[in-house]
């Protein structure tokens, strides 16, 4: 009898514990989702309301219409600019990162350690202090007023982000390389025939990270577009939307723009989520 009672109370404890966990998880989820719902509701409001929902009678689509019609918010152009920048950044950066990582992981040459140390040290300086110089160089190259300057800025230092891909390459058995070399292959063949086919997850991870980067960066974008005195037509979405927040008249428009930026990026992210998780988890353990 006592035994049974104990079992029942144990089951009860387990159940209540589980209920507690569900409760906590639900609470956490609500907290984490709340800002996004808030964003969506606010994007349909006429004015910035103090509450979560727009006041009754103030629901409107006007914010979305404004984005595409107002001359000071050429949202479509921002979106296309950002897409072009992100596309080329993803392409170039992935190629450069793979090249650097392969060289640092698989090849042994003089100065390899020194190069890795140099990159580590360079990473400790606040990067944006160099913007003045970078801008001067862009001016010298005559491309400071085009969006291609941003592609250059985002990709030029790709070598600095070799860590994750190198960590991945390090785990590919060296025996495979040796097999190719014995068959008369070169290190070039190893790269194309062994490493790249095995690296699909890390390639997708690199593309994903470098593609989403330009959508979120506003620091470099703002500095270059402002210093060059570009028209709003040349902005990226981040620069454009950040500019909107300074004026409360555009509050709803900002929310609408934020929704429209977030949807494609979020969709892309969830589509490739698996690779992202693998990438950051691997990078964290290998440091």
């Amino acid at each position: 009898m006592a035994e049974k009672k104990k079992l029942v109370s144990k089951r009860f404890a387990e159940k209540s514990q589980r209920a507690l966990v569900y409760f906590v998880l639900t609470l956490i989820s609500l907290i984490w989702v709340f800002p996004f719902f808030y964003l969506i509701f606010q994007s349909f409001g006429k004015y910035a309301s103090g509450g979560i929902f727009p006041a009754s009678g103030e629901w409107t689509f006007q914010n979305y219409v404004n984005l595409f019609t107002l001359p000071e918010t050429p949202f479509l152009k921002w979106w296309i600019n950002t897409f072009v920048i992100a596309f080329f950044t993803a392409l170039l950066q992935t190629i450069l990162v793979l090249m650097t990582s392969y060289a640092l992981s698989r090849l042994r040459f003089n100065g390899r350690q020194a190069l890795m140390k140099l990159i580590l040290i360079l990473g400790m300086f606040p990067g944006f202090l160099g913007m003045l110089v970078i801008y001067y160089i862009l001016e010298l190259l005559g491309m400071n007023t085009s969006i291609f300057s941003l592609i250059l800025v985002y990709t030029a230092s790709s070598a600095m982000s070799y860590y994750v891909a190198k960590g991945f390459f390090d785990t590919i058995p060296k025996a495979l390389d040796e097999a190719v070399m014995i068959d008369g292959g070169t290190k070039n063949t190893v790269f194309w025939r062994v490493i790249l086919p095995l690296s699909k997850p890390i390639i997708i991870y690199t593309i994903l990270v470098s593609f989403t980067g330009p959508w979120g960066d506003f620091m470099f974008g703002k500095y270059i577009t402002q210093t060059a005195g570009m028209l709003p037509d040349g902005y990226t979405v981040a620069v454009g939307l950040q500019g909107l927040t300074s004026n409360s008249d555009y509050y709803g428009t900002f929310c609408a723009g934020a929704v429209l930026v977030s949807i494609p990026i979020t969709a892309l992210f969830f589509w490739l989520q698996r690779y992202y998780v693998e990438g950051i988890a691997g990078g964290a353990v290998k440091g």
Binding site: T100, Y102, R112, F125, G130, M131, I137
Partner: peptide
């Protein structure tokens, strides 16, 4: 010398846009 081919472009970018500014 495969590393020279692989690292040439990344290094030019690194020097021009990070080393010189730093």
């Amino acid at each position: 010398n495969y590393h020279t081919l692989l690292l040439a472009v990344p290094l030019v970018g690194l020097v021009g846009f990070t080393v010189i500014p730093v």
